[in-house]
């Protein structure tokens, strides 16, 4: 059987908030190392990869490899029934056709359980090559969300340009042009507010705002976001899940015809 117990249940709630606008259904692949999910959005423009390591759970048992196909809209509705401070346990028998979510209040006075049917999803997985990125930008997640929200008003694409001076986000459209430049922060008292850039070579790429906006739903998960870029390859937008994993969004660039 499979059983995973997470005392910090709100992490799982936030992971679903990070996925539900982009994916309607996906498979959770469970093994003794932990839980992974990989899926493309319906238009095959972006890919999401989630990893939750076993050692991040307070109890983790996975007797046999298990792939649980779920409707993420339904899963999100169930997880919304959990309070932010609830302990969340996910349980499933081997070869099961349903999964059970158990929500326990911290004082154990209230226990709720929800059973959801599983789906047969024959989702092929994509190989993601290890890449030594030309530029890796780390910035406050809320800052990135604000930049994308503001520039989305100007156009349907954002140009992200990284040089040694800093990183520039630009958008142009009918109402005009918007440019936001972020310089590397010199010294900050709080690490989480820093903007840091590791650059091997300058890189400039164009991406659709629609997907970047959906990625920033993961802002609730982590104080910082990491953007990794290389010429002519997908952008990686990564949010940590506590110290037990990550949500990684890959977005194909828009390329000159």
């Amino acid at each position: 059987m499979f059983e995973a117990r997470l005392v910090q249940g709100n992490l799982l709630k936030k992971v679903l908030e990070s996925l539900k606008d982009l994916l309607t259904e996906a498979s959770w692949d469970c093994a003794d190392t932990g839980i992974q999910l990989q899926a493309m959005d319906n238009s095959h423009v972006s890919l999401v990869s989630v990893q939750l390591r076993a050692d991040g759970f307070d109890k983790f048992r996975c007797d046999r490899q298990l792939s649980m196909g779920m409707n993420l809209t339904s899963m999100s509705k169930i997880l919304r029934c959990a309070a932010n401070d609830d302990i969340i346990t996910i349980k499933a028998q081997d070869q099961a056709d349903n999964v059970t979510f158990v929500f326990e209040s911290p004082n154990q006075e209230k226990v709720a359980d929800y059973e959801m049917k599983l789906m047969n999803l024959d989702q092929e997985h994509l190989g993601i090559p290890e890449t030594d990125y030309a530029a890796v930008i780390k910035l406050p997640a809320a800052e990135f969300q604000r930049i994308i929200k503001d520039l989305s008003q100007f156009g349907e694409s954002v140009v992200i340009s990284c040089t040694k001076e800093g990183v520039k986000f630009s958008a142009a459209g009918d109402i005009g042009v918007g440019n936001i430049k972020l310089a590397q922060t010199a010294s900050v008292d709080k690490e989480e507010e820093a903007v840091t850039i590791e650059m091997q070579e300058p890189v400039t790429l164009t991406f659709a705002c629609r997907y970047l906006n959906m990625f920033t739903k993961a802002t609730c998960l982590a104080p910082q976001v990491t953007l990794s870029m290389s010429p002519e390859v997908p952008l990686v937008v990564e949010y940590k899940i506590g110290d037990m994993g990550h949500v990684r969004y890959y977005l194909a660039p828009k390329i000159e015809d």
Partner: peptide, 14 residues
């Protein structure tokens, strides 16, 4: 004009 590429032209199916 720039055209949107698909993610599965960059990452191969396993």
């Amino acid at each position: 004009t720039k055209s949107q590429r698909s993610i599965d032209t960059f990452f191969k199916r396993k």
